[in-house]
Amino acid sequence: MEVSLYPGCSFDGVAREYRESVEAVAKILSVEFKELPDWTCCGASSAHVANDKLAVALAATNLETADRVGMDLVVPCAACFQRLKVAEKHLKQGKPVEGFSGKYEGKFHIKPIVDFFWENVGEKALKEKVKTPLKGLNPVCYYGCLTARPPKVTDAKNAEDPQEMDRLLKALGANVRNWSFKTDCCGGNLTLSRTDLQLKLTRKLLDMAEEAGADCIVTECPMCHMNLDSKQKEISQEAGKLYNTPVFYFSELMGLAFEDRSVEKWLGRHTVDPRPLLKQRGLI
């Protein structure tokens, strides 16, 4: 199966283990992700603050490229996904997009990467590759804000309670916990500019995961991962109690269940080391 991939700016940087694990599991599942040629930044969380037209045009130019390639476009970053969908809606409604004069027919779908694995690769193909079921692991799925919201843009089936990642992890054998904070904000937009507020929002997610009986959090968004994984030391200092919850990319857990040999290399890039938990559960 071949599809286009829009990696986004974090995929080579802070989310390096995300890229490595996505590439590894794609190989196992015979999925070929073709990186969108000469892709450019989608405008992310800043262009829409400065100028609506700039924000739409920056994303639209990538849709033109995807149209030319002619394959569905898979996106591993929640913010990139949403910005590309905003541009898609503009173009499909025939609204003029200043700064963009390209051709667009829209003969492809834009999909968050978890939805792609769950819906296009499918449960059967995933289950066939499972060598070590993730028995004993109790994750909560954290989707973040922008793969879901707002549904009139994202076309999410269930924006308040998405299910795709939950089902995918259950197919891998995990004991997925239910919780009400799947799409609550981690404060990603304020990480650098109002760190105090971001820490409050992220701490709430860590607390609620614990209350739901989870031993780890799983995400599909590079910014959510960074906030949840790399800020626990600061949160511990502020709270006066130890926070030490492993945070995985869903693709890392796929690799773990498929027994990919690079799993420990990916996990070594985390701030909270998930290996003690996995050893305790007999998974590595």
């Binding site: 283990e17 100028n51 700039l54 045009a57 890039r269």
Partner: peptide, 25 residues
């Protein structure tokens, strides 16, 4: 942890981005 990309990507399309900034600003 190997998570810092030292140099920015070099690719042809960055002119396209500058043009969009100019056209919309």
């Amino acid at each position: 942890k190997g998570k810092v990309k030292i140099l920015p990507s070099r690719f042809r399309a960055n002119k396209r981005v500058r043009d969009i900034f100019r056209a919309t600003e």
